[in-house]
Design a protein around this nucleic acid. Structure first.
Length: 724
DNA sequence: GACCTGCTGCGGGATG
């Protein structure tokens, strides 16, 4: 750590990698302070993605540094401002900070930041994988470069991470201009033994004459329950198994949505009260109020009573929750990396195995089941992800994004920091060899023109750029510092206490029943102006709110692995008997309908295309088909192309495969909704297409799929319905 | 099908 080189430490959860970085750093800083009593300034800055992680580490690091008499400081939104000003007056020791707070230092303490950081010897980035590829990661890269420009020298960067699928791309993220010089230290995984089971459940088909059932989507997320009696049987069965296996221990149950968390937490908590057992079942997700979440975390750390948290990815990163016995995952994992993180939350004590149970539901086989469901896609996706996990493969980050929205934020930030700047100066600092090195001068000039049109920036007669009126408005609001977008939600209040927030698209009528925080409530009143919903406890049923979401992207490698699982005769040992049956059924359907020889099929009036590729290729296919006047949508594993024969679709694919690949940006102009990130609304049509193409299209990957499909024999007309 | 993260300055009041 003395050589001034950048360092990437990749090691399993709970392997002590934080300490590996801290120990040498602290002893060097302590020695240096003895040698040079005048050395003033923060010696090391640790950048962390979560306030909760900073608070955890503040305790551990303070203990470590106490005997060295090396002060440790934390700086985030919950830290009192008097502590911040006292650090600015007397900067020393180690500083723990979030990217957003570092951003605010540049804007609100533009005079003090150079003095604060002038003695900086290292920048440590914790949980690097949580930044790579995102808007927040682009912001972090830009801030790292701005710190070095401010100090006029290179500052060694040390990054820590657990699930890096691709160490080379992590090194590129850490030091974009000089990735090959990054030293890499890889440790083995913390877990020696994994006990794993995948359990299958069959969703019964409702009788044809039954009254209106909750729609299919609601059933799948588990949000369809309206009371004890109407809980769908597969949800009741899964809850029953969770209850029996998890009672009397500390566990984490991961569900894929906040609505599913609420459903299972409420079912399990009610059962626990009814049977009067000690185990607490508590809900934990991002819309719950902070004090309720902290209560759950404290209950998990307290080893005197058993607690099981039902949660979303909120408990995925390294927040200390003590020792957890087992992990349950309801539904197929969303990504292999997140499955790895979740698994790493158990088996943290030496000699104790990590325990993981995955619960998968599939519809009952019948004549009406659409082909993708008959293939048992949920189960095959789960098995594919488990196999990839066991082979230590993780999703490579998507680093092609241009992050123009974040560049807009950085332009405004630099204008505020420096009190104005010239266009060339901005370009050199932010693009050039800065965080947005992929952006050329012409795109940057276009971006500035777009910003001028919206009054985010304005130009003086001498060419100096300043924030415009709307730019000032953004800069003066505290929401400016985060690079990511957040929505404005309604606050849920019961008996004077805030439970959390929920989005409300249609106003909730008083009297509506609701499940939230793992309990049942009735809406008493709605204050539209102040966006407050008042609740009272209720004995009735109710559903969790529907939360909006963007979803995640399934990788090419996952879909390729799924296809090879259909072709393989092997039955993994970790499947329970129902899951084995489902695996056998899926393979039988795959072969019966000729999926090994064909990728285009007929289904009623439509044609189905199975690309066996990731979501970015699936999306590109949709855009290409739309350009040829075809209306299509994605149904899990396949694209449904409406009102066209399979032969006609195959012929189109055959022609496309030999035609030149279209320009992605030109292709993107046909897409209606292209804005996604915080400041995308200020981009003109041209840059919106450029950003969309970089983020959401994979033309070469798509043309590989088209050639593959074209190389197969033409499909028989309407094969699927008749053979069904 | 649908995860998560973060931020300021100021005024008012309670506490040491």
């Amino acid at each position: 750590m003395t050589g001034g080189r950048d360092l990437l430490i990749s090691a399993g959860t709970a392997s002590g990698k934080s300490e590996a970085a801290w120990l040498p750093m602290c002893s060097i800083l302590a020695r240096r302070r003895e040698e040079d009593a005048l050395a003033r300034g923060v010696g090391a800055m640790v950048i962390s993605p979560l306030k909760a992680l900073i608070n955890d580490q503040y305790g551990r690091l303070s203990e470590l540094c106490e005997r060295l008499e090396l002060p440790v400081h934390r700086w985030h939104g919950d830290v009192a401002s008097c502590r911040k000003s006292s650090l600015l007056r007397r900067p020393t020791g180690v500083l723990l900070i979030t990217p957003e707070s570092l951003e605010s230092l540049f804007i609100n303490h533009s005079d003090g930041i150079a003095g604060l950081l002038r003695a900086l010897s290292w920048i440590v980035i914790d949980e690097l994988h949580s930044f790579v590829g995102s808007a927040r990661g682009a912001q972090l890269q830009s801030l790292l470069h701005r710190v070095e420009v401010l100090l006029g020298r290179r500052v060694p960067r040390v990054a820590l991470s657990a699930t890096l699928g691709d160490v080379a791309s992590a090194a590129r993220f850490l030091r974009p201009q000089d990735a090959q010089s990054v030293a890499i230290v890889s440790g083995t995984d913390g877990t020696d033994e994994i006990r794993l089971q995948v359990r299958g459940y069959v969703v019964p088909t409702p009788p044809v004459t039954a009254p209106a059932e909750p729609d299919d989507a609601a059933r799948r997320t588990g949000s369809g329950g309206t009371g004890q009696d109407s809980v769908p049987s597969e949800i009741a069965q899964i809850a029953d198994h969770l209850f029996r296996t998890l009672r009397e221990r500390d566990n984490l149950v991961f569900a894929n949505s906040r609505a599913a968390v609420e459903t299972y937490a409420e079912l399990l908590a009610r059962r626990s009260r009814e049977e009067r057992i000690r185990t607490e079942f508590l809900a934990h997700h991002g819309s719950l109020a902070k004090d309720l979440r902290e209560h759950v975390e404290a209950r998990l750390r307290d080893s005197s009573t058993p607690v099981t948290a039902v949660c979303t990815s909120t408990l995925e990163l390294g927040i200390d929750v003590g020792s957890v016995q087992a992990i349950a995952q309801i539904g197929s994992p969303l990504t292999v990396s997140s499955l790895r993180q979740r698994l790493g939350r158990s088996g943290r004590r030496p000699g104790t195995p990590a325990v993981l149970r995955v619960y998968v539901t599939e519809p009952q086989a019948s004549d009406d089941v659409p082909p993708p469901d008959a293939l048992r896609g949920e189960l095959f996706q789960t098995v594919a992800m488990v196999e990839l996990l066991l082979s230590a493969w993780y999703e490579p980050p998507h680093t092609a994004g241009l992050h123009l929205s974040t560049l807009i934020q950085q332009v405004l930030s630099v204008l505020a920091q420096r009190g104005g700047a010239r266009a060339g100066e901005l370009f050199d600092l932010l693009c050039g060899d800065g965080g947005f090195a992929g952006i050329g001068p012409s795109v940057f000039a276009q971006l500035l023109r777009d910003l001028g049109r919206h009054d985010l920036v304005r130009q003086e007669a001498d060419g100096l750029l300043l924030p415009g009126a709307r730019g000032e408005a953004h800069l003066n609001h505290y929401s400016f510092y985060a690079a990511f977008q957040t929505s404005q939600d309604h606050r849920l209040v019961a008996q004077g206490r805030t439970l959390g927030t929920m989005p409300v698209e249609r106003p909730l009528a008083p009297g509506t029943l609701l499940v939230f925080g793992g309990r049942r409530w009735r809406v008493l009143a709605v204050d539209v102006e102040h966006r407050v919903i008042e609740l009272v406890p209720s004995e009735g049923g109710g559903q969790p709110p529907s939360f909006p979401g963007n979803g995640s992207e399934t990788a090419d490698e996952v879909r390729r692995t799924m296809r090879s699982l259909y072709l393989s005769p092997e039955v993994p040992r970790y499947l329970d008997p129902v899951a084995r049956d489902l695996l056998r059924e899926g393979r039988e359907v795959f072969h019966r309908f000729g999926h090994s020889r064909q990728q285009v099929f007929g289904w009623h009036e439509d044609a189905l295309l199975f690309p066996w590729a990731g979501d970015r290729v699936m999306n590109t296919l949709l855009v290409v088909l739309a350009r040829h006047g075809l209306s299509a949508g994605q149904d899990g594993l396949c694209l449904t192309v409406r009102g066209v024969s399979p032969l006609a679709l195959w012929e189109l694919i055959r022609d496309l495969a030999v035609s030149p690949q279209p320009d992605p940006v030109e292709l993107a102009t046909g897409v209606r909704v292209r804005a996604r990130d915080k400041y995308d609304c200020y981009l003109g049509q041209e840059l919106l297409s450029l950003a969309y193409a970089a983020r959401a299209l994979d033309v070469p990957g798509t043309w590989e799929v088209l050639s593959q499909v074209a190389s197969l024999p033409p499909p028989a007309p309407q094969l699927l319905p008749r053979a069904w």
